[in-house]
Amino acid sequence: MEAQNLSEQCDWFSEENRTEPRVSGQLDSAGCLFLSIMPNGGAIPALICILVLMTIFSFLVNGVALFGIVRSEDLSWEPRCAFLKNLILSDLMQTVSICPAVIHSLVQRRTMEFSTWCYVQYFTGTASIFSSLVTITCMALERYLYVCHAIHYLVILTQARLRHALSLIWVFSISISTVNMVLLHTGQGHKVERATKGLLCEPDVMEQHMGFPRASAVFRKLVGSCSLLLCLLVYAFSYTRMYRDARNAVIPFNRVNTTARKTVLFHSGMLFLQLLPLLIKTTSDAVWEVEGTVAMMALSSGDQGTSGTMMSPSTTAVQLHMSLLVTLIVPPCINPLVYVLKTAELRRALLRPFRQWKRKRVAGLRVMEEMRVREVVHLNRDQAG
């Protein structure tokens, strides 16, 4: 009832302007657009709690994982740990650039304002997502070299080549973000209205606000689809070859390598969760192409000539937008669990500080107990004398 009363303050379909809401009452355009995206006010507190918990969990697990790897001298030289540190850095950038802004929009019940922070969020988010995608692709290749070409592993993956690979990952990711930012300004000019039509400055929202630049949309979709396809092909090739080698190792003994099969299935499932935001974005792009629009706003039903018809986001657009907001936080939460907890060396590195603290605590308790016993012995001797 409260949402219905608030929505009555927004006149979405005026004779003078059939694309922007005409505001009456206490709500401005950002509040009206928020109501069109989140008409059910009861779901907002639950969504805020989910995003806050996922944000805290992401900072916690990534911070602990990075701290354990940096402190471990044995793992500092290993290529997989170098890639993992790069992945953690990308995940932290993604969490910082996305979560606070979305939570702020939900708390204020307003859509994202088009400002300098919107550019920063779009640039940082794009760079971190591409960096994570290329990094997990390199990690799959690194595991393939380690398992299938163990003899030549250190010869192929030297420290110099590792540094070059990490540098190229960031050069590629930042270049993609820079080109996207430049192509965004090739549209017909952004709108005067500062309120965007989303809770996050994602590509669809940015392109709509900047006048639907065709070059930006084509470049983003082409590069994103090719990068996603390349990642899937490399991942499939690497783990298929590793599984075949593990399977061939036990064929003479007429046994099935169950461990290898479970490992491949586990990493395939985790890869699906990591790529879920990109899959949703690809689905969103396909939907916009079918419907003939790349905007978040679309006519939800037929009669455009009636002045009482409301122009609101389509149900599919809202669902994809909200799904993207939540799933963007999933990879930063699961990456440390996948690449740290499944590796015995990394688990020992993370648990080492806690074990050392436990040993020191036990040693301290023993010293205190010995001192107490000595005091009791000296006291008994004094009393006996």
Score class of each variant (00 low, 15 high):
Tyr146Ala: 06
Leu341Lys: 04
Pro45Gly: 02
Phe83Ile: 04
Arg355Tyr: 08
Ala344Ile: 10
Gln121Ser: 15
Glu202Pro: 00
Ala298Met: 11
Ser97Arg: 00
Ala65Lys: 02
Lys262Tyr: 09
Ser131Gly: 09
Lys281Gln: 15
Met310Ala: 11
Leu141Gln: 04
Gly302Cys: 07
Arg361Trp: 10
Glu289Ile: 12
Ile280Cys: 13
Leu184Trp: 14
Phe212Ala: 14
Cys138His: 08
Gln304Asn: 11
Ser175Pro: 01
Ser323Met: 14
Thr258Ser: 12
Ala295Thr: 09
Lys221Arg: 13
His209Gly: 10
Val96Asn: 02
Gly25Thr: 06
Thr135Asn: 01
Leu89Ser: 06
Leu33Ala: 08
Phe83Val: 00
Thr293Val: 06
Val338Pro: 03
Asn40Val: 10
Lys221Thr: 01
Gln274Ile: 15
Trp288Arg: 14
Ala150Met: 11
Arg361Tyr: 14
Asp382Cys: 06
Gly125Cys: 12
Gly305Thr: 04
Gly189Arg: 08
Val290Leu: 09
Phe114Val: 11
Asp91Val: 03
Gln159Thr: 04
Ser312Cys: 10
Leu320Asp: 04
Trp357Thr: 13
Glu369His: 15
Leu184Met: 15
Leu232Trp: 07
Gln159Glu: 03
Arg214Glu: 10
Met322Asp: 00
Ile176Ala: 00
Gly198Thr: 06
His190Ser: 10
Gln208Tyr: 09
Gly269His: 07
Glu369Pro: 09
Pro353Arg: 00
His185Asp: 08
Tyr243Gln: 07
Leu365Arg: 13
Gly305Glu: 07
Ala246Lys: 05
Pro336Val: 01
Asn86Met: 12
Leu168Arg: 11
Arg347Trp: 03
Thr55Lys: 00
Ser14Ala: 06
Cys148Phe: 01
Ser175Glu: 05
Arg261Phe: 12
Tyr339Ile: 01
Pro277Arg: 08
Arg366Phe: 10
Pro21Asn: 14
Ser115Trp: 11
Glu289Val: 14
Tyr243Val: 05
Phe34Leu: 02
Gly364Pro: 08
Phe237Val: 07
Val318Cys: 05
Val64Ile: 15
Leu162His: 06
Val155Cys: 00
Thr158Tyr: 02
Lys191Met: 08
Glu16Arg: 15
Ala217Trp: 14
Ala249Leu: 02
Met54Ser: 02
Val96Tyr: 01
Val182Lys: 04
Val338His: 12
Leu200Gln: 04
Met371Phe: 10
Gly42Met: 08
Gly385Ile: 11
Gln9His: 12
Ile169Gly: 00
Gly385Leu: 10
Gly385Gln: 13
Met242Val: 14
Leu92Gly: 02
Cys99Gln: 07
His104Trp: 07
Ser238Glu: 03
Met296Thr: 11
Phe67Thr: 15
Ile151Cys: 12
Leu222Ile: 03
Ser24Thr: 13
Ser227Asn: 05
Arg244Val: 14
Phe212Trp: 11
Arg372Cys: 13
Gln4Ile: 12
Glu291Asp: 13
Arg214Asp: 09
Arg261Ala: 06
Val120Asp: 03
Leu346Trp: 00
Gly125Ser: 12
Val373Trp: 07
Leu168Trp: 09
His185Ala: 09
Arg71Cys: 08
Tyr119Ile: 12
Arg255Ser: 07
His164Glu: 07
Gly63Asp: 03
Ser72Leu: 09
Trp170Gly: 01
Arg18Tyr: 08
Arg110Phe: 04
Arg255Phe: 05
